[in-house]
Design a protein around this nucleic acid. Structure first.
Lengths: 320, 320
DNA sequence: GGCAACGTTTTTATCGATACAAAGGATCTC
DNA sequence: GAGATCCTTTGTATCGATAAAAACGTTGCC
């Protein structure tokens, strides 16, 4: 018990005793057994982070920020890769239910509004993503519409008149692509430009590979454009590649803008204009929300919806 | 106890009893308490992965593979970011010592040969990286010299005569840059080319930013080259950017090759030639080694040194 | 019938840290 | 000097799962 008091820095331990304990600890090479502590305290000090794949620039960036933020809150982070599959996302929820994690930051991509009831669990969850709004848990999201509108407006201001959007399939559901598409449309409308459905380039998944392949096809089919708003920087990289393959010069013939401001964006040739959603702030907010729920054991204040700020980053791909 | 037997699928449980247990489990919404199990079993089912920063393409790629491999072995992965700092790497070792992890995969960047004794711990550790060879633990490394030699030779075969290497500081110690530099030198020697010290471009850290900045400076100082071997793809991205800034055409005036084959490489303009070290295989090997040591509780066979295979990936940056 | 052998279920003890309570010791007050 | 008060240390029970052993019930065999 006294050892425990020393370890946890409790007061009311005589300095002499503390020293004796510390001495014995070094001598015996004592290490606290975290499992025992977890059992007794009902806490693990670890939160889960479920993302589609850690090897995508955006999620890597996010994970780095979240691990750093968690560290500041004295929490460790265990990562699950869900592959954007709904079942895996639900499985991540189940794992933390086993008290493996004190809470979970879940990046929803596969789950949809229909899965809201699955979030009714007895441990803290923060949703980081766009698929689920108004659920029973805290939600940290990007400023999707506003930022997309700003990005598209920027293209308009640079003189683009046939602005394509490269995005995922537009279902009726809430998702990154739909939200950003809405912002795109708003900017077009404001500018008095018609929204030509021809200009919607739909890709299977938001990867470089799919984006490049699909745009190559569309260009081959005669798609005409002078600007492209890509729903992520990763997609934009595929787009830049496809345009290069087609011999289209950026930004002279087509201006391109992305979304996320991943590290690579600044070093591409041409460097990529984009919107920067302040990942660090979002990460800090998500972890802080989770940590405060963990501390208050569920009975917290109202559920929070947080949409971060953003700023436009203008680089070569839209004319510098 | 019977519940435990049911959960763990032990034999000798009457089907009727099993059903009753299962029924009760659903009815009561029972969840195993992982902390209690960990305490009793002395295992956590979690391994640690300590990398400099998850937000670098190479480590992201690696982490994704390792998480997938660990999943196949029934293990979860908790990630520590060490920022390439020696103290943080040592701290990661201490954490697993607390039985927080069953074992640790440690990507050594800050630690050096002098820290070998720190690896004398009572739990399994696998080193993934280049700084420490012949330590008391298993070691999974890249085929550094051979692959670097092949990459450089490729430049020679494409007609390059003034081949620069862009790498980190070359200390006396074993590290990525030194090892790959050795391979580079060997290829030059074999080709009968002189190793001009002018052609060694040393960057502070292996990032796009530093690589771009440093090469810009060197180009401004009049550096002449017709080929560049970059010790990582990330460095190569910075290099491509700096060359573009200087108005140098790739591959016409300078051919560039990287190392790692990160996803982005194929989509850059120009696409980047590189060597591909089979990340999945390395990850699988590292996890398998760790898992077998965990199962055999230390008393395993001899320490293993594993260097994976590689293949040359020729793309536009060296002439396609 | 009695006993062994086996399959199944229940009991007990344990992993190690810590909350809580009780005990010990010193100091102070009236 | 007795008692109250405080600070410090020690004792005990507990978190929940499980290893090991004991108890229980069947069945089979001589």
């Amino acid at each position: 018990m006294t050892v425990s008091n020393v370890i946890n820095g409790h007061p009311n331990v005589r300095p002499a005793t503390r020293d004796r304990v510390l001495e014995a600890m070094t001598r015996l090479d004592y290490r606290v057994n975290v499992a025992a502590r977890n059992l007794r305290k009902g806490r693990t000090g670890t939160i889960g982070l479920a993302v589609p794949e850690i090897n995508r620039p955006y999620y890597g960036r996010l994970a780095a920020s979240i691990i750093a933020a968690a560290d500041r809150h004295g929490l460790r982070v265990s990562i699950e890769q869900t592959g954007a599959r709904r079942e895996s996302e639900l499985a991540a929820l189940a794992l933390s239910r086993n008290r493996l994690y004190d809470g979970l930051i879940l990046s929803t991509v596969g789950m949809g509004p229909a899965d809201v009831q699955a979030l009714e669990v007895d441990h803290p969850v923060v949703i980081l993503g766009e698929r689920i709004f108004g659920g029973p848990v805290d939600h940290v999201a990007m400023p999707n519409e506003a930022a997309s509108e700003a990005a598209t407006r920027h293209l308009v201001e640079r003189g683009c008149r046939r602005i394509a959007i490269v995005c995922g399939r537009l279902g009726g559901e809430v998702d990154v692509s739909s939200l950003r598409h809405a912002g795109y449309l708003r900017a077009l409308t404001e500018a008095g430009l018609a929204a030509d459905p021809e200009l919607v380039v739909t890709v299977e998944s938001l990867t470089m590979q799919d984006a490049a392949r699909r745009l190559r096809e569309r260009l081959a089919d005669g798609l005409l454009l002078d600007g492209a708003f890509c729903v992520t920087d990763t997609v934009a990289m595929g787009v830049l590649r496809a345009l290069a393959d087609a011999g289209v010069r950026v930004p002279e013939q087509v201006r391109v803008i992305g979304f996320d401001n991943v590290d690579e964006s600044a070093y591409l040739v041409p460097s990529l204009s984009t919107v920067d959603p302040d990942h660090d702030l979002m990460a800090e907010r998500a972890v802080a929300l989770l940590a405060s729920r963990i501390d208050r054991a569920g009975s917290g204040p109202e559920r929070e919806e947080f949409a971060g700020p953003f700023r436009l980053v203008v680089r070569e791909s839209t004319g510098g």
